Amino acid sequence: MKLHRRRLRLDGRDYTVVTLRPGTPSRFSTNFYHGTWHVLSDWGGARLLGRLLWGLAYQRVPGTVVLIDRPHLDTNPFDAEPADPIALVPALLTPFTHKAARDLRQRLPLRGAPDGTVRWHTHGLDTAVAAQRSQRDRPRGSWQAPWIRPRGFTERVDRIGGLVTLTATPDLLEEHAVDVSTLGDSAFHGMDYTELNWPNGEVQVFRDYRERVSAAAVARREILSEAEPAAEPAAEPAAERNAGAKAGTQAGAKALAKPESKARAKTGARAGTRAEANLEAEAGAGADANPRGPSRLDPYALNRLIWDRGTEVRRRRLPAQTSRPRTNA
């Protein structure tokens, strides 16, 4: 497998940034959901990601980083929000600081001719994948090597400097490479996943990944076209939105726990009731004047609407089923 290589100076250090070639057909996306960073793709993308992880485990050049960026990134297949670039980092070989990640993100997308081409060797991966698949067929209760908890740093999945980053030791890179390469073997309803540094990371694949990406983009356009132009919220990183929601919930709980807040709550409840009645009256009066939809959409409500509409879009695209005429026996 051939990849492109670029030499970049990031945070005062020299880095070798390895990227996919423009003609590579695999596509990826990312999103942050239930406190976990997800790398999303299909069966083919999982096989390619497995080879990238396996080859990275055997790299010997300090400062090597594998980067997945446009044109190999899609908007995510749930609510069509932009994906973050993905960085794969060998933990014992490359120090990848927040400053280095920010410097790299500011240079994206990387343009111009690469500094060279590298042959990405993945010898032994196919054998390891076959061995793992054979383990599933062994008799129940047969002996297996005990799992020993590793000590010290092993891996980390996080969003660093605008990049969704997987940093892992060579042993973990190999293990993840095998797990990712077998995604789809045990798919349930066209979906499969494997954990990375759980609960911080996960690789999730869909059989109809590209169809989901397309449907989500159509759904987002439809939902926003039904609302006023000001309905689309300002772009905000997924991690910050989740952190803000959690902080708001905790702050509200602490406020309710204070004794003096109970008296304020009674007064506020009466005022809130009057305010809600006024808002409902205004909404009713303006319903006929603005039949297109709400003037403001909460980001979480918007994402949920897009998710549901995307399901409808995929349903509409299904071929019509013709009923067979019944015949009397």
Rank of each mutant, 00 (worst) to 15 (best):
G50K: 08
W43M: 09
R60W: 01
P25D: 04
G45L: 08
V39L: 15
L20H: 06
L40Y: 14
G45P: 08
F28N: 03
S41D: 11
H38M: 11
N31Q: 12
S29F: 10
W37H: 15
L49F: 15
R60Q: 12
S29D: 11
S29R: 09
A57C: 00
L49E: 05
F32T: 04
T24S: 15
T36F: 02
S29E: 09
L40E: 15
S41V: 11
H38C: 07
T30V: 11
S41I: 11
S41W: 10
L20W: 08
D42N: 13
Q59S: 04
T30M: 12
S29Q: 09
A46V: 04
A46D: 05
Q59W: 01
R47G: 06
L20C: 04
G50E: 06
W37Y: 12
W43R: 15
L53M: 09
L53I: 01
P25S: 06
T30E: 11
Y33A: 12
H38V: 05
W43Q: 13
R47Q: 14
F32P: 01
R60E: 13
V61M: 07
W37M: 05
G50N: 08
W37L: 13
G45W: 09
S41H: 12
L53E: 02
Y33P: 00
R47A: 11
R60A: 10
P22S: 06
R51E: 13
R21M: 11
L48N: 02
R47W: 04
Y33G: 07
G50D: 08
G35A: 01
L49I: 06
L20R: 07
G45A: 08
R47T: 09
R51I: 04
V39A: 10
D42P: 07
T36E: 07
G55I: 07
G50Y: 07
D42R: 03
A46W: 04
R51K: 14
L52E: 02
H34N: 14
W54E: 06
R27K: 14
Q59Y: 00
D42A: 05
R21P: 03
T30L: 11
A46I: 05
R51S: 10
F28K: 02
R27Y: 02
A57T: 01
L49T: 04
L53C: 02
Y58K: 08
L40W: 14
L20M: 14
G44N: 15
L40R: 14
P25F: 05
W54A: 05
H38W: 15
A57L: 00
G44V: 11
R27A: 09
H34R: 12
W43Y: 14
W54R: 05
S41K: 09
G44T: 15
W54K: 03
V39N: 03
R27H: 09
P25V: 06
L56M: 02
